[in-house]
Design a protein around this nucleic acid. Sequence first.
DNA 1: AAGAATACATACACGAGTGTATGGAAAGTG
DNA 2: CACTTTCCATACACTCGTGTATGTATTCTT
Lengths: 203, 203
Amino acid sequence: MARKTKAEAAATREALLDAAEDIFLEKGVARTSLEQIARHAGMTRGAVYWHFKNKCDLFQAMLLRVRMPFEELAEEANNSGLANDPLSAIREACRQGFSRLEQPRYQRVHAILIHHCEVFGDIDPLAMQNEIAEETLVALTGYFAHAADMGLLRQGLSSEIAAGLFQSMLGGLFHDWLRNHQRFSLIERGTALVDAQLSLMRA
Amino acid sequence: MARKTKAEAAATREALLDAAEDIFLEKGVARTSLEQIARHAGMTRGAVYWHFKNKCDLFQAMLLRVRMPFEELAEEANNSGLANDPLSAIREACRQGFSRLEQPRYQRVHAILIHHCEVFGDIDPLAMQNEIAEETLVALTGYFAHAADMGLLRQGLSSEIAAGLFQSMLGGLFHDWLRNHQRFSLIERGTALVDAQLSLMRA
DNA sequence: AAGAATACATACACGAGTGTATGGAAAGTG
DNA sequence: CACTTTCCATACACTCGTGTATGTATTCTT
């Protein structure tokens, strides 16, 4: 085969990553070969080994195309100027995260990470999930503590328990939705649950 | 090798399943070979292929040694004579499930099912999780509807939303705990969260 | 415009894992 | 006490996937 222009080469690289998303999601990471990925992108294994060192490298490249939603959730919660209303800040951060995850690429990659890959090379999805969960819990605890100081929380509800309840609820919702996203809309059901939970927690 | 007595043969079968639990949990299902399982049990692959048809059959046999806690959770919640207090019935059913899952074998097998195996042969772990989640949601909806009829729920809180919140919270808690169970006690944290959530929901 | 680098396709060697076939010694069975 | 069956080890053939080496037409460089 002949050499292609730089733009074409970049396009085949993206096509390989797209194909990897498709087949990883369908068959799981461990059960898919580089041959299957290449064929699904209309290429051969030669293209894969030119653009990526091996399967693990390709997997990492696939992850780099999306950012973790919870990280952005924490970021955007900090950036939102609602520091005087921490509970509303939590709500808006959740809605931001929901709409991010509804984008097909985000949804597919996260579904692969959480439900379709095992420990794999030097990538440990469970460790990544643990980090994300811990970050989320810390961020939520801060916001609920702030809310408690302002007297916004129902009496008898500590900020630690509130943060734990909220984080578990969010995690369960994400797992449910990623398992089969066509059953319900994440934004609709997510905001309904978030609003209900915050309403229960408000003084 | 020589033939062993029936009891000894059954013991080696259990030893093979124990070894499978260990290595599946450590390395993931896809990355473990039958050779590794056999060696970890002090046997060879001949023993594995005598007791099981293949890897998928061994996996199913491993699953059969534990039963789904949610099914039994619902059963025992029905059997408990707390029909006049649905919220307390939910609490007790959850505590039953927590103590079940704290048993090492239950914890290990469920951690494997949820976090350490992909789609695999004719076994689809995600489908199993979907079934369990659906059953749980239906059961919870029934109990919360009963509670709503009795006026036990806070006004403005529908039984569907209450069930959704509770199921997501339970699911998130399970995923968190199964990811690394040494971080906290499921019974302690679980009952704390369940009590807090039910307290928020009570009228 | 000529050499060098690029972007793949093709071909090959290699190991790892699987499934099966065979062997054999002890346990059950009558 | 023969005789069959059981329980497992060993050995072999086979497939699948990987990694690398090589070829090659084209694009980029100067």
